[in-house]
Design a protein around this nucleic acid. Structure first.
Lengths: 149, 149
DNA sequence: CTTGATGCAAAGTGTTTGCAACTTA
DNA sequence: TAAGTTGCAAACACTTTGCATCAAG
């Protein structure tokens, strides 16, 4: 784990602590474990996977607590929720990362991230044309990745 | 209902009949009713709504049959399934219509459709850059519509 | 008359919630 | 020690499925 990664996790910790304090909520040992696992994970993960990882550190952590903490991590901007259409939500680290969209391989499930400013500009122009104010968007390209074509 | 609409519905009927025949499936009275309601509906509708409409024509039609028929209508290309993130799938007529994307108002739920070729071109270029072959895509812009800003 | 389709209710899936016991601040 | 948090199991919402009966071809 490199320096940047360490720094980001540190940021995540204080962001979450501040978020909880501001809302009069408590930083429990379970929340600490779940935060650590969520921000330490690479790529996209499900609630079920997060539960599994968290249980390795504290076997008493429950599914309910994972879901409740996931909601807080989303609300605080530390995680972002993604729906790739496979019936369950996936999560990824959001804080300190730029917005990006996804290419999803329908065969192997691989997810590739990309940023494309020209597309975003055109999206905004399109929205403006309809008198629409965009808050967030979701662009997913489904198909075959290099290895699955 | 105008001439074009009539023609489209006719197309839907023969498409579905052909589809079923090719697969050795049967065109039942329930399927006829559900097809008619699905292709006659305007805009986006849920399985539950389709069941409600279909029951008006034949009160014995069941939820299970609606879901099973919906799968066939999707497979035959007559309907397209959309997930606007409200916990249930929505459907829209697809046959004979151009591909389009959606603006979704997070306050009133209104859905605006748009076509944007330049965006699609950029998407394909982006995919190509990753050695990715796109089969289909989903672009949704969430925000406030003109009346909800 | 054979094979697929139907309605019903039960099962499934991922997620949320009520509650009594327990921690954090 | 007050107020939020936890684990558990039950509840939820949507969708799917097993099965005996029914109907299309």
């Amino acid at each position: 784990m490199d320096y940047t990664r360490q720094t980001l996790i540190k940021d995540n910790q204080s962001t979450f602590a501040d978020f909880l304090q501001t809302k009069g909520l408590k930083l429990t040992s379970q929340r600490r474990v779940i935060l650590a696992q969520a921000t330490g994970a690479r790529g996209h993960f499900s609630a079920e996977q997060l539960l599994k990882f968290s249980k390795k550190q504290d076997r008493t952590i429950s599914k309910a607590t994972v879901y409740r903490t996931l909601a807080l991590l989303k609300e605080s901007g530390i995680l972002e929720e993604q729906d790739f259409g496979d019936g369950k939500m996936l999560y990824e680290r959001a804080q300190g990362r730029k917005h990006h969209d996804h290419l999803i391989c329908v065969r192997c499930g691989r997810v590739i991230e990309f940023e494309n400013t020209p597309i975003e500009k055109l999206q905004n122009a399109e929205a403006r044309h309809h008198g629409f104010k965009v808050i967030y968007h979701s662009l997913k390209l489904f198909g075959f990745c290099r290895d699955c074509v």
